[in-house]
C-alpha cells in the first residue's frame, strides 16, 4: 500500500516537473524543474526495487548532466531570452498527444509475460556480477569506456578555441 502511494505521488511530481520543463519561460527555472523530475524518476526506480539505479540516476543525472546544462545556460545567456517556442506548437501538440494515445493503447493491449516473482534485492552485487562476471557484459562495458573516452576527446576538440 505504501508502495502505491509512493508511486502515485512520484508519478504526479515527475509529470508536473516535466510539464514545467517544457512550459516555463525562464530557462533556469526549467532546468531546476528538470532536476526535480530526475529526482522523481530516481524515486520511481526505488519503487521498482532498483536501488543501485536510483543512486546512479541521482549521481549522473542530477550531479553531472544537470550541472552541465546549467553551465551551458549560463554561458549562452539563454536566461535573458527565455524559452521561446517555434511555429510548430499546435501541430506538435497534436502529434504528441496522438503518440501518447497510440503508445498507451499499444501498451495496454499487449499481454506482457509478467512473472510474479519477488524482485531481487539488493541489486548492487547482482548487477556487478552481471556486468563484470563470466558470461556477462564485460565487452560492452569496455566499449562503453571507449565511447566515453571518445566523447571526452570529441567535446574538448569541438569547444577548443582555434
Amino acid at each position: 500500500m505504501g508502495l502505491e502511494i509512493a508511486f502515485w505521488v512520484l508519478a504526479v511530481v515527475a509529470i508536473a516537473a516535466a510539464l514545467a520543463v517544457v512550459t516555463l519561460r525562464n530557462v533556469f527555472r526549467a532546468a531546476l524543474s528538470l532536476i526535480l523530475c530526475f529526482l522523481a524518476v530516481a524515486g520511481i526506480f526505488v519503487t521498482l526495487s532498483a536501488d543501485f539505479l536510483a543512486a546512479v540516476q541521482i549521481l549522473i543525472y542530477v550531479g553531472a548532466i544537470a550541472v552541465l546544462i546549467i553551465l551551458a545556460i549560463m554561458l549562452t545567456r539563454e536566461v535573458e531570452r527565455g524559452s521561446l517556442s517555434n511555429k510548430l506548437v499546435v501541430p506538435v501538440l497534436i502529434s504528441a498527444i496522438l503518440f501518447f494515445g497510440v503508445a498507451t493503447f499499444a501498451m495496454l493491449n499487449t499481454s506482457w509475460p509478467v512473472v510474479s516473482l519477488p524482485p531481487a534485492e539488493p541489486t548492487t552485487a547482482l548487477l556487478a556480477s552481471k556486468l563484470f562476471g563470466e558470461d556477462g557484459f564485460i565487452l560492452t562495458v569496455e566499449i562503453a569506456a571507449i565511447l566515453l573516452l571518445a566523447t571526452i576527446i570529441g567535446a574538448i576538440t569541438i569547444v577548443r578555441e582555434k
Binding site: 517555434n86 510548430l88 501541430p91 506538435v92 502529434s95 504528441a96 503508445a103 499499444a106
Partner: peptide, 16 residues
C-alpha cells in the same frame, strides 16, 4: 524539428 514531427507522425501511422 519539423522533420522530427513527421517522424513521430510516421511512428503513429505505423502503430495504427
Amino acid at each position: 524539428q519539423l522533420y522530427g514531427m513527421f517522424i513521430i507522425l510516421g511512428v503513429v501511422a505505423i502503430i495504427l
